[in-house]
Design a protein around this nucleic acid. Structure first.
Length: 415
DNA sequence: TCTGGGGTCCTAGGACCC
DNA sequence: TCTGGGGTCCTAGGACCC
């Protein structure tokens, strides 16, 4: 019965870029970026020039003229990411995987088997380097939040253990943006009142903090700054929503752009739902305009759906409504569809009778069920012959702009 | 030199019910 | 006629994470 929890946070360093450098020795030691139009990941050599993920490729090339762009090997990312996390899993089943390259592990119950958490962390780093070939940083601490911060401070290719006796000393000298939940906006708001370090944040009266940032954010950050982290490892999280989006560059807000794009997005989302026997009640459509401002419209149905065509029709209605509210916007830069309020057992849900307000355009039970059967048939053909074997009409997406499907899959969470 | 894609959580107002 | 209070759901938007 250990009195204190021991949490590890393991985080592969510059993951995609490291995989490319592993497979192609000519890239080692060089500034490289995975991606093209947009930088999906940068090597540490590139980060030294200020290149960051999410940055437009053109901007990255300005910052670093000798930057080498490489296209991604996404299947490899999935395989090696899994392999690295599996090494961590050898030390405990109490794993919460945050993303493809990052996981928390609660090793409190493993100490009697493997020794001190710091030794486990060192073993993990050695084994991931030897067996997977990649550098991984590990933070060790009493709480999730502290372990996560420790791994960030340890990077690249480092190990940092936060001694339970010196947690606040460690925490309070660090810049506020290392905390979970502090992004550019919150960092800016804090900077305006002269708060740059976690220690300064901790010294703010709770009430001023909540006035500045809102009760939830302010309260949470205040607690974290004093090292009160309520968060425990969650070993089996399931996604609460599914979504798909397409950046469009600049396209006119016309039916020939909107229709095919929404059908494509609806297909992606609905196929994923059906593959996991799930369905959702709330449908949200997002429209982003040329100036990057965006609006959303949503509707909650009396029963959950997972049929492609119904989802596409509802999304089209939502987008039409959104555009009607903004008659002066003529140019679109992105469309997105999300389904939330997810429920299990799509088959049963879809057989429940439900009626939508406009029966003419939004078929209810019988047609809905028939469409679901058709969608399942399409799904099974695709399973055998590939995604492109059969489609829902023409998809007039600008392929040069869009991101490979393999990459999209990396970000998908388990439904 | 206006930026990709998939997610989570929170807020605030209004509708509706008891 | 006007007065309460609490709870839940829905919608739209915003900040943040990887």
């Amino acid at each position: 019965m250990a009195a204190v929890a021991s949490i590890l946070h393991a985080d592969l360093d510059a993951f995609y870029a490291s995989v490319e450098q592993l497979h192609n020795p000519a890239l080692r030691g060089k500034p490289i970026a995975v991606g093209g139009g947009v930088v999906l990941a940068a090597s540490y050599e590139a980060k030294a020039f200020g290149v960051r993920g999410g940055m437009p490729g053109r901007r990255a090339r300005q910052l670093c003229p000798e930057l080498v762009f490489v296209s991604g090997h996404y299947k490899e990312y999935q395989r090696l990411g899994d392999a690295a996390i599996d090494v961590v899993r050898d030390f405990t089943p109490r794993i919460e995987r945050i993303s493809i390259d990052e996981a928390f592990a609660d090793v409190t119950g493993s100490i009697h088997l493997f020794g001190a958490p710091a030794d486990m962390a060192a073993s993990i780093r050695r084994r991931v380097r030897a067996e997977v070939g990649l550098p991984i940083s590990v933070g060790v601490a009493r709480t999730n939040h502290l372990a996560k911060i420790a791994s960030q401070v340890a990077k690249p290719d480092g190990l940092l253990v936060v001694d339970p006796d010196t947690e606040l000393e460690f925490l309070h000298d660090l810049p506020v943006e290392l905390m979970w939940g502090i992004g550019p906006v919150t960092k800016g708001r804090l900077a305006e009142v002269g708060v740059l370090t976690i220690g300064q944040l901790a010294d703010m009266p709770g009430r001023s903090l909540e006035r500045l940032l809102g009760t939830a954010v302010g309260g949470k950050l205040g607690a974290l700054a004093w090292n009160r982290d309520p968060r425990a490892i969650e070993t089996d999280r399931r996604a609460g929503s599914v979504s798909a989006q397409s950046a469009l560059g600049k396209r006119p807000a016309t039916d020939d752009v909107i229709g095919p794009t929404l059908r494509h997005l609806a297909d992606r989302v609905a196929t994923r739902l059906r593959a996991k026997s799930r369905a959702g009640r709330t449908i949200t459509a997002r429209v982003r305009f040329a100036d990057l401002s965006s609006i959303t419209r949503s509707v909650t149905l009396p029963a959950a759906i997972s049929a492609t065509t119904i989802l596409a029709e509802i999304a089209e209605d939502l987008v039409a409504g959104a555009l009607a509210d903004h008659p002066h916007e003529q140019v679109l830069s992105l469309l997105a569809i999300a389904v939330s309020h997810l429920e299990d057992d799509a088959v049963l849900q879809l057989e429940l009778p439900f009626e939508l307000e406009d029966e003419e355009r939004r078929p209810g039970t019988k047609k809905g069920a028939a469409r679901w059967v058709l969608d399942r048939a399409v799904d099974s053909v695709r399973e055998r012959f590939g995604r492109d074997a059969v489609g829902y009409g023409s998809v007039a997406l600008d392929k040069s702009r869009s991101v490979p499907d393999d990459f999209r899959e990396l970000a998908e969470k388990d439904l």
